[in-house]
Each structure stands twice: as C-alpha cells, then as structure tokens.
Computed example of a mutant assay.
Amino acid sequence: MSEDPVIELRGASKRFRSGSGGVHTAVRDLTMTVARGEFVAVVGPTGCGKSTTLSLVSGLEPPSDGEALVAGRPVDGIPDGIGYMFQNDAVLPWRSVLDNVAAGPRYRGEAKAAAREKARDWVARVGLGGFESYYPHQLSGGMRKRVALAQTLVNEPSILLMDEPFSALDVQTRALMQDELLRLWSGSNAAVIFVTHDLEEAIALADRVLVMTAGPATVKASFDVPLARPRDVEEIRLTAEFLEIYREIWESLKEEVEETRARGAGRVA
C-alpha cells in the first residue's frame, strides 16, 4: 500500500436544494484520504451522507465548499480509472453475461473481439465460467452480483467505489461475495471506498474503518483494522481480535446511531 493519497477530500461540504425550497446539507467539512492499495470502509447512521461522499469522489456531484481530489488533481467530471458498484446492479437485461461484461471495454474503444476475450476472462474469474450466454433473468441474485463485479473490474480501475453492493443478498451469498471481492482486489493496488451499514462487513473487509457522524456527515473517527491478510470473512468474525475491534468501533458508531434515532423521534413527536 502506497503512503501517497490517491483520494482526498479537504473540508468538503455538499448542499442540496430540498423539496420545500430550503437547503439540505448532506456532508459538512469532510476531510479524508485514501492511499493506493488501501481498502477503506465507511459506516454511519442511515441517511447521514455516506453515499454523497462517493458522489464527491466520483465527480457525480461537485462539492459546494472545499475540495475533492483524485491523484492530486481537483475532480472536474468523472476521473479516469474510477469503478463504481451500486447497491442495485447495472446489468442490462437484453444482453448476455458476456456482453454485459464486455460493454465497458467496448465503450472505451476496444475492438469487439478483444473486449469479449477480456470479458470471458473476468467472467471466469468471478466464477461464472459456462454462463457466458445466459441472460440476467436466468441468474440468481448472487450470480447477478458476480456479473456486476466483473463489469466493474474488467476495466481495471485504480479506484473502486462501492455503495452497499451486497446489502440485498442473503447471509451466505453475501459472505461468498465478500471473499470473492477480497480475492479479486488483492494485488490490484486499487484504492477502495466501501460504504456499508454492516459494521461486521466493514471490519472483515477493510484496512481502515471511518465512522461518520449523524447528518450532516463528517468523519468522527478513523480505526485501523490490524487483521492479517488474506482473510476468510466467516472465520475472521470468530476471532477474539475481530470482536475487540468491533466493540471499539461500535462504541463510537452507537452514539451517532442513537443521535439519529433521537432526531427522528423528535420530528414524530
């Protein structure tokens, strides 16, 4: 892992016009860095602005104040080398597995044969060899997520942004996809920001966990995860080291979750 940050947010804030005509501040004075090859998980209360953080890094939204930088340059549009995996997969229902995965290289100008060959390799890497000609409606939810992961990684991104990509999966499939992600990311030197509501998932995957405050979000605390790699996410959850880290981070996160709940109860009252 390189010490030089490839992602930087410097005092970044983001405000949106609300439906009532007012102004909603999603994130405020947000400062964070992610190094090349570093896997950072972001946790925080529901609605605090975690996804907005990804939007600032990806260039989908400009900061209202402060700066967003990728590879030392201000973000102005979508930077080169960004891979973005959303909670809802973006597979195209009228395309086969192979053609879904080949779409990215084709959009980037690769010849059809070269794009399909690269896609075939990634389909095999995510464990879908033999399913190249299947269509999304013929696949399980976990298999669709594998297609989405191949779609993202086939372009060999230097930055991987993931917004709760496995949250809709059942527990067993989710664990398999977490292991698959770690296997495919290992050695890529890609910087990862992984947004999740699941603290166990964050610790099992990441080198570092950032806890966000109740909205408008800023970084409350950063916790290193000194668990050895490679990791088996199911086995590592059972270790004393994992439980110790979990308790430490949860003490910080719990305060923000309770604050969000209290605000909600106040509005209802």
Rank of each mutant, 00 (worst) to 15 (best):
Q178V: 01
S167W: 01
G129R: 14
L243G: 15
F86H: 10
A206E: 00
S18I: 07
E38F: 02
R73G: 09
Q138A: 15
T33I: 08
L56M: 07
R174M: 05
R247D: 12
R15C: 03
T152W: 00
G215M: 09
E110T: 13
S58P: 09
R263S: 11
M1G: 13
V257T: 06
E3D: 15
A115N: 07
L56E: 06
W185H: 07
G266T: 10
K118T: 10
L160S: 02
A262V: 10
I245H: 04
L60C: 08
H197C: 12
D4R: 15
E38L: 06
I193G: 00
M177K: 06
K14N: 02
A102G: 05
G11H: 13
F166D: 00
V154G: 04
G83I: 05
L184G: 03
V42R: 02
V91P: 03
R263E: 14
G266F: 10
H137N: 12
S51F: 06
P74T: 08
P5R: 12
S158R: 12
M177F: 12
V57R: 00
A214K: 10
R15Q: 08
S222F: 06
A115S: 11
G66V: 01
E241D: 13
W122F: 14
L139Q: 04
E38K: 00
G130A: 05
K118L: 11
S140R: 13
V101E: 01
R237M: 12
K118D: 03
R28P: 01
L227K: 02
F166I: 05
A191P: 03
D198H: 09
S167A: 15
G11M: 06
S140E: 11
E256F: 07
L9G: 00
H137I: 06
V23K: 04
H197P: 04
G66P: 08
L182G: 01
P105K: 07
A228G: 11
N155K: 13
R28V: 03
A113D: 14
A221T: 05
Q178S: 03
T46N: 14
D232H: 07
W185A: 01
N100T: 10
S20G: 13
A71F: 14
R183Q: 06
K220S: 15
G104T: 11
R231G: 07
M32C: 09
V219T: 08
T46I: 08
A175L: 15
A119I: 04
E256N: 06
P74W: 03
L153D: 05
A68F: 00
I7A: 02
G66Q: 09
R247G: 08
T173N: 09
N100H: 10
C48L: 14
L153H: 01
